[in-house]
């Protein structure tokens, strides 16, 4: 299912930070992993990912380093910093609160007591 762009873009930094929680990844891996975990719902473009990663790096939420693989390919890996981990916790909390609130509205609102 193709998701509406505006729904995805607002939460993209949360998703990227979440991907890095389990280990360091390079850009191409992130796109593939996001696609796998979302069961093909999130098809992130490289042109969206890299400016986002670089701005997260600028804010100190991720750090990057280059490593050359056995194949000889050099990749720039991104690593979640402590500051990034804290930001992820905050973003997760506010996203969960937002998702619950949206869910309640879509279901017709909270039931009044005794109803």
């Amino acid at each position: 299912m193709e998701l509406e762009k505006s729904l995805v873009s607002g939460s993209m930094s949360l998703l990227v930070l979440k991907l890095l929680e389990d280990g360091d990844l390079y850009g191409y891996q992130m796109i593939a992993e996001l696609r796998r975990r979302s069961e093909d719902a999130f098809r992130l473009k490289a042109g969206t990912l890299y400016p986002l990663l670089h701005s997260l790096e600028e804010k100190g939420l991720v750090a990057a380093y280059e490593q050359t693989a056995e194949s000889g390919k050099t990749r720039r890996y991104y690593h979640l910093t402590k500051q990034g981990r804290d930001a992820l916790r905050e973003k997760e909390t506010s996203w969960n609160a937002y998702a619950r609130a949206v869910g309640r509205v879509l279901k017709g609102g909270a039931c009044p007591a005794g109803a």
Binding site: G27, Y28, Y50, K73
Partner: peptide, 10 residues
């Protein structure tokens, strides 16, 4: 360079 490497992988 980073984008080129990405394109190569893809």
């Amino acid at each position: 360079q980073e984008l080129e490497r990405h394109l190569e992988d893809q």
